[in-house]
């Protein structure tokens, strides 16, 4: 595509929170690649014409010597026959700029103390470099503090949610019209599955409550509720078990809850399934919907 024919970028921005790191990007940049590992990983964002930003993180024991790191890095790039490598800095982030494979790139690094990790942001300027955008994006990158009960906040693929304390992102399934994220703690005592499902008229023929009941019904002690929260009708279903006898003896029963609602804003169905293995029934929060997961695109809701 000829860059001159490209559409102008929207002025709105969108917040992403991944691995307790937040960043605000132009609204038309979407995450196309990601890593689940918290120790070392990468996310890549693209607009409709190509990749625009690579965002990588690496856990390190302490703050690095950025001056030396950047000099080494620039030397490496020069050795790779990247001409015209220059030092740069934006919004307190040291970096280097240069042209790689015909594309101007600018790379910046920063150390985040609370997360003990180095974050590297690489901008790919297919068209002219935009220093103001570069600065705005770098300024927005920050650590996201833990939420209630030390729960970690994630905001991606249209969902804004708190993962159970100690739980990592274990499984992901991203398809056109379907995003599915599963968080689980290493001991297997808590598991959260968050889904955002589109093309609703193609698969939902009846009532959402009936669909949730059919999809989730298992074990015993069923309880159902329906309530409306800021224009969203939420179907809630909860129950207990079934568990194998030995597991129940060792850890207690599995208490499960599911919430589903259709967002009037984007028309998609959001489903939140949580399994907790506890001896006692978990204390129900006053408003689990508002506190634990919301539709990210719906401006009326805030976690």
């Amino acid at each position: 595509m000829n860059p001159a024919r490209e559409r102008p970028r929207p002025t709105a921005t969108r917040l992403w929170i991944w691995r307790s790191l937040r960043l605000e990007l132009p609204a038309d940049w979407e995450m196309l690649q990601f890593t689940r590992r918290p120790e070392r990983g990468r996310c890549a964002f693209a607009d409709r014409y190509g990749f625009r930003l690579e965002f990588t993180w690496r856990n390190v024991p302490g703050p690095p010597d950025f001056e030396r790191m950047m000099n080494d890095y620039a030397a490496q790039l020069r050795a790779r026959k990247m001409p015209d490598v220059r030092r740069a800095s934006a919004a307190k982030w040291p970096g280097v700029r240069g042209v790689e494979d015909g594309v101007e790139t600018s790379r910046f690094g920063y150390y985040f103390d609370a997360e003990s990790c180095i974050v590297e942001a690489v901008f790919l300027w297919r068209t002219e470099r935009e220093p103001a955008l570069e600065r705005a994006v770098l300024k927005s990158i920050a650590e996201e503090p833990a939420g209630p009960d030390d729960a970690r906040r994630w905001r991606a693929f249209g969902m804004d949610l708190f993962a159970p304390p100690g739980a990592g992102l274990e499984e992901t399934r991203i398809l056109p019209g379907e995003a599915d994220l599963v968080f689980a703690d290493p001991q297997g005592r808590s598991r959260l599955r968050a889904r955002r499902i589109g093309l609703v008229d193609r698969w939902l023929t009846g009532d959402l409550g009936a669909w949730l009941r059919q999809a989730r019904r298992r074990g015993r002690a069923q309880r159902e509720r329906v309530w409306t929260d800021r224009g969203h009708t939420v179907f809630h279903i909860e129950g207990q078990g079934p568990d194998p006898g030995w597991r129940r003896l060792a850890r207690g029963p599995t208490w499960w809850t599911s919430d589903a609602w259709r967002c009037p804003g984007d028309g998609r169905v959001y489903v939140r399934d949580e399994d907790l293995q506890r001896r006692r029934r978990p204390v129900e929060s006053a408003n689990p919907f508002g506190r634990r997961m919301v539709c990210a695109g719906c401006g009326a809701l805030a976690p």
Binding site: M1, D28, P176, L199, D266
Partner: peptide
Amino acid sequence: EEIVDRFAERHGLSFHESRVA
């Protein structure tokens, strides 16, 4: 590109979701 945009608009998908489909 225009087909992807139209498809996204009709089915409430994002650009990249529509592009993949």
